[in-house]
């Protein structure tokens, strides 16, 4: 079975751990327990009739990505950059962050994800996305589970051909 390292990163409080927990344990909590350092877990998914083991790293949020220990990024095949649809401040450093990650991981599959879609209406979502420096790949909710499985399936499929 092939194994791939996928990281969840972005500013703090955007819902990285919640997406991680929803994906790995199918659980959601309203409590906010900030992540210290990093947590690693694994889930086996099926893509293209094949099993793929995803080693998921949930990294503690930082306002800008150059504050994160570089070793957490190294060797990652997939990068999920999460921002919070309800807090514009979490998109502020998106361009610099993605450029920085691109430089570190030139071959990585990067996905930009707007989370907490359950808290805002469609009109707001569209407005926030239109104002982003880079295109948003997917809108998710760790609470309702919207697009959570899909996010990992898409990444898995792209990693398979990459």
């Amino acid at each position: 079975m092939i194994s791939k390292k996928v990281i969840l990163t972005g500013s703090f409080g955007v819902g990285k751990t919640s997406l991680f927990n929803k994906f790995v344990y199918s659980k959601f909590s309203d409590k906010y327990l900030t992540t210290i350092g990093v947590k690693v877990n694994k889930k086996v998914i099926k893509v293209g009739g094949e099993e793929m083991s995803i080693l998921l790293w949930d990294i503690a949020g930082e306002v800008s990505q150059d504050k994160v220990p570089v070793s957490y990024f190294l060797g990652a095949s997939g990068i999920i950059y999460v921002f919070d649809l309800t807090r514009a401040v979490t998109t502020k450093n998106m361009k610099e962050d993605i450029e920085y990650l691109r430089r570190l991981l030139p071959n990585g599959v990067i996905k930009i994800v707007g989370n907490k879609s359950d808290l805002v209406g469609q009109d707001i979502i569209e407005k926030v996305i239109a104002e982003l420096a880079l295109p948003c790949d997917l809108v998710t909710s760790a609470k309702t589970g919207e697009n959570v499985e899909e996010l990992f399936t898409i990444i898995g499929e792209e990693l398979l051909v990459a």
Binding site: S3, K4, K5, G37, V38, K39, V40, N41, K42, S53, L55, W57, S71, Y72, L74, G75, A76, S77
Partner: peptide, 26 residues
């Protein structure tokens, strides 16, 4: 870099070894 487990040997049944590899690397 990735912390991906290439192989392991254990005398007892531990928690998921892939996870151990990842956390040790972290």
């Amino acid at each position: 870099n990735s912390g991906i487990l290439m192989g392991s040997f254990s005398r007892q049944n531990t928690i998921d070894r892939d996870m151990i590899g990842g956390m040790l690397t972290a």
